[in-house]
Write a protein that binds this DNA or RNA. Structure first.
Length: 442
DNA sequence: CGTCCACAGGAAGAAAAGGGCA
DNA sequence: TGCCCTTTTCTTCCTGTGGACG
C-alpha cells in the first residue's frame, strides 16, 4: 500500500475541475432560451452568406452574455464547416473568446476565410485600469490581426493612421468579419470606433470584407449615451440579458455538479444556498455561483469531508469575498495604494474619519520616506475620488458653516480593514516603494 | 438673511511616457 | 538624431457653494 502524498487531500469529491473554469462551455446553456433565439436571428445571415448584422447585448456580469456568444459561435463555426466542407474556413480561434491574452490571429487557409471572429475586451486595454478609448480599441483590433512580433505599440500613432491600418488588415482578410467588443462601455465618451466600423464598407474604406459588430455591455445606460449615428448602426438589434434568478442559478449549478463532482457529495439544499448567496451578492451572476461552489468543494476536501454542507457554502462565500477585496486593492496604482496605506495607518491610530489635507500629509510622509516625490493635493484628491468610486473608501462631506467651512472626511469602507490593505500591499511585488515596516512603526 | 470659511472640483496646459518617420 | 505625433497624469489657477454663525 503506497503512502499517501502530502499534496493529496483526504477526500476527493471533485472529479472534473474543468466545469469550474471560466471558458468551460456546457453542452447546453440553460435558462437563456429567449436570448438564444434572438441571437440566432442575428447570426443567421452569416450562415447564409449574407451581410452580417450589428447587435448590442446588455446585462449584468455573469448572466450569460459571453457564454451564449461563445456557445453560438462555436455552433455556427461547426455548421458552416458542415455546410461548406473543410476548406472553406471558419477562421480565427474561437477560444480567444475568453482567454485574456488572445493568441495571434490564425486563419487556416489564407485568403478566402468565410468567417473571422475577433473578440476584444475593451476594458483595461491601455495603461492599467483606466479607460480604454476608441483609439486604444482600434490599436488593439489591428493587433488582433497581426502576429505577435508585428504588434503595434499602444501609443505614438496618428489616429487616422490606425483606422486606415485597421481597414487594410480587414480588407486583406476579406470574407465576413465579426467583431465582438466585450465591455464596450469602457470606451467612454469618444465612440468613433463604434461609428467607423459598421459604416466602413458603405464609406468605401473597405471593399473585400463585410463587417458585423456585436457590442457587449453591462451598463444599461451606455447605449443611450451613444451618439445617435452610432445608435442607428450599432444597435440595429439588441438583446437584453436579465439576471438569473436563484432557481435558475441552481439549475446551472446542477449541470456542473453532474459533470464535475462525485455523486452524493452535494445536496439540493446546499446548491440552493449557494444559488441564493450568489443571487443576493451579485444580482444573479452564474460566475459567482460557480466560484462559490468550487471553493466550497475545495474546503470540504481539505477538511476530509465527503459532502458540501451549508456551512462550507457560507464559508466559501465569505472567503471569496475577502479574496475579491484583496484583488481589488492590488489592482490599484502606486498613488492609490499609498493613499490606502496612509488611510490604513489613520485607522490604526484611531483618527478614523480623516480630512483630506491631513491624509495627504501622512501620504506624503510615506512616499518621501521611500525616496519618492508625492503628488499635489489636487491630484491626490482625484485619486481619492477614484477610490471612493471603487467602493474601497468612504467619503463624507462635513460642513461647519461660517468659521469652519466645508470639507470631506475619509475612512476605509465597511468591508475594508487595515489588515486587508496591508496584505494586498505585501502581495503586490512590483512596487518596491512601499515600505511596510514603516507602517508598523508608527 | 447675508456672511464667510475651507474646501470641491472644473479648466487649461505642462510634463511624462511611449513611439513614428525622415 | 531631431522633430513630430499620441495619451495620460499632474499642476496651477480659479470659481462656486452648503450651511452654521452672527
Amino acid at each position: 500500500m503506497g503512502e499517501k502524498s502530502v499534496f493529496d487531500s483526504q477526500t476527493n469529491i471533485i472529479t472534473d475541475a474543468v466545469v469550474f473554469e471560466e471558458d468551460y462551455t456546457p453542452d447546453e446553456i440553460y435558462c437563456r432560451d429567449e436570448m438564444k433565439t434572438e441571437y440566432v436571428q442575428i447570426l443567421r445571415p452569416i450562415y447564409k452568406g449574407r451581410p452580417p448584422k450589428n447587435a448590442f447585448l446588455y446585462g449584468d456580469t455573469g448572466v450569460g452574455k459571453t457564454a451564449v456568444t461563445k456557445f453560438l459561435l462555436e455552433k455556427l463555426a461547426d455548421d458552416l464547416e458542415k455546410k461548406h466542407g473543410e476548406q472553406t474556413i471558419t477562421a480565427n480561434n474561437l477560444s480567444i473568446l475568453s482567454s485574456e491574452f488572445p493568441e495571434p490571429h490564425t486563419v487556416a487557409s489564407g485568403e478566402n476565410a468565410d468567417l473571422t471572429v475577433v473578440q476584444l475586451n475593451c476594458q483595461n486595454l491601455p495603461t492599467k485600469g483606466e479607460k480604454g478609448t476608441s483609439y486604444q480599441v482600434a490599436v488593439a483590433l489591428v493587433n488582433q490581426f497581426l502576429s505577435e512580433e508585428d504588434e503595434l505599440s499602444t501609443t505614438g500613432h496618428a489616429p487616422q493612421a490606425i483606422y486606415n491600418r485597421l481597414y487594410k488588415e480587414i480588407d486583406r482578410l476579406g470574407g465576413t468579419i465579426l467583431i465582438i467588443l466585450d465591455e464596450v462601455d469602457a470606451i467612454g465618451d469618444d465612440d468613433t470606433v463604434l461609428y467607423e466600423l459598421p459604416r466602413s464598407r458603405a464609406d468605401g474604406k473597405i471593399s473585400e470584407a463585410r463587417i458585423g459588430v456585436i457590442g457587449i455591455s453591462n451598463d444599461y445606460t451606455f447605449q443611450q449615451n451613444l451618439s445617435p449615428k452610432v445608435q442607428d448602426s450599432l444597435c440595429e438589434r439588441e438583446i437584453r440579458f436579465p439576471a438569473y434568478g436563484a432557481d435558475q442559478l441552481a439549475t446551472i449549478l446542477r449541470e456542473r455538479v453532474d459533470v464535475g463532482l462525485i455523486e452524493g457529495s452535494y445536496s439540493e439544499s446546499s446548491l440552493a444556498i449557494i444559488a441564493a448567496l450568489a443571487r443576493r451578492d451579485s444580482s444573479g451572476s452564474a460566475r459567482k455561483a460557480i466560484d462559490i461552489l468550487q471553493k466550497a468543494a475545495e474546503i470540504a476536501e481539505d477538511r476530509g469531508k465527503e459532502e458540501i454542507t451549508e456551512a462550507f457554502a457560507r464559508e466559501a462565500f465569505e472567503e471569496i469575498r475577502k479574496d475579491e477585496l484583496i484583488e481589488d486593492i492590488k489592482q490599484q496604482d502606486a498613488h492609490k495604494l499609498n493613499a490606502l496605506n496612509a488611510l490604513a495607518e489613520a485607522h490604526r491610530l484611531d483618527k478614523v474619519p480623516i480630512r483630506k489635507k491631513t491624509l495627504h500629509s501622512t501620504y506624503s510622509k510615506i512616499v518621501e520616506d521611500n525616496g519618492n516625490k508625492p503628488i499635489a493635493v489636487r491630484s491626490f484628491h482625484n485619486h481619492l475620488n477614484r477610490l471612493v468610486m471603487f467602493g474601497l473608501v468612504n467619503e463624507v462631506t462635513e460642513n461647519r458653516g461660517k468659521g469652519g467651512g466645508r470639507y470631506n472626511v475619509y475612512e476605509l469602507s465597511q468591508e475594508m480593514t487595515p489588515q486587508a490593505v496591508n496584505k494586498a500591499i505585501n502581495e503586490t511585488d512590483d512596487i518596491s516603494w512601499v515600505d511596510v515596516t514603516y507602517i508598523k512603526d508608527v
